[in-house]
Simulated assay, not measured.
Amino acid sequence: MQALVFLVDAVVSFFCTLFLLRFMMQAMRVSFAGQIGDFVVKLTNWAVKPLRQVIPGLGGFDWASLLAALALQLLLSALLVGISGQVISADAGTIALMAGWFAIRTLLRLAVYILIGALILQAVLSWINPYSPLSAPAHQLTRPLLDPIRRIVPAISGIDLSPLVAILLLQAVLMFL
């Protein structure tokens, strides 16, 4: 049973990451023209396209992608509660509220991990291959986070410490989540 839960969790986490990445890329105006954008769009269209007919994008955000990630996390929460088989001494509303909070908290943590991964990727690529096809999307994804930090923490001897500060701040956010 643990292997099944592990596999379901891995698949749900993979697709939630893709849905969140699609949401974040669209919100931060990252181009979908490259390999990463094409990969994300092709693997998420099965859920996002039908949802867009019901939920339009408003305010420059792709709400269908975010709803798809939330729906998957809610399904995982319900599955985990069902598989546990434990008698819960709470009413259905409380259980639904707990599952909803678990799903939202998990998506927030996943979004923070995506940003940390993009910051690390951007830093490594700046040393190894700044002209990599992954450099531009990573830069566009992290720019809204790094620009305010760069105003406070200037480059020292040509070394930009803002990604390090951003990662430390995001780690602190993870502690609260």
Rank of each mutant, 00 (worst) to 15 (best):
Q2C: 07
Q2I: 14
L4I: 15
F6N: 10
F6M: 08
V8W: 06
D9T: 15
A10D: 13
A10L: 15
V11T: 12
S13H: 13
S13Q: 11
F14M: 11
F15A: 03
C16M: 15
F19Y: 14
L21T: 05
R22F: 05
R22T: 07
F23W: 10
M25N: 01
Q26M: 08
R29P: 00
V30A: 03
V30H: 01
F39L: 08
V41N: 06
V41P: 00
K42H: 12
L43D: 04
T44A: 07
N45R: 15
N45L: 10
V48E: 00
R52M: 13
Q53F: 12
Q53Y: 11
P56S: 03
G60V: 08
G60T: 09
W63Q: 00
A64H: 03
L66R: 01
L67K: 05
L67R: 04
L67N: 04
A71F: 14
A71W: 06
L76H: 05
L76D: 00
L79Q: 02
L79I: 12
L80R: 14
S84T: 13
G85V: 07
Q86P: 06
V87S: 13
I88T: 13
S89G: 14
S89V: 12
G93F: 12
A96I: 10
A96W: 13
L97Q: 10
L97V: 09
L97H: 08
A99W: 08
A99L: 08
A99S: 11
I104N: 02
I104C: 04
T106M: 04
T106V: 06
L107R: 03
L108R: 05
V112E: 02
Y113S: 02
L115T: 04
I116Y: 06
G117M: 07
G117E: 01
G117I: 05
L119H: 03
A123T: 15
L125T: 05
L125P: 00
W127Y: 15
N129S: 14
N129Q: 11
S132D: 09
H139V: 10
Q140G: 07
R143A: 11
R143M: 09
P144V: 09
L145T: 11
P148T: 05
P148C: 05
P148H: 06
V153T: 08
V153P: 00
P154V: 12
P154N: 09
I156V: 15
S162N: 07
P163E: 04
A166M: 05
I167N: 03
L169S: 05
Q171S: 12
Q171E: 12
V173A: 11
L174W: 09
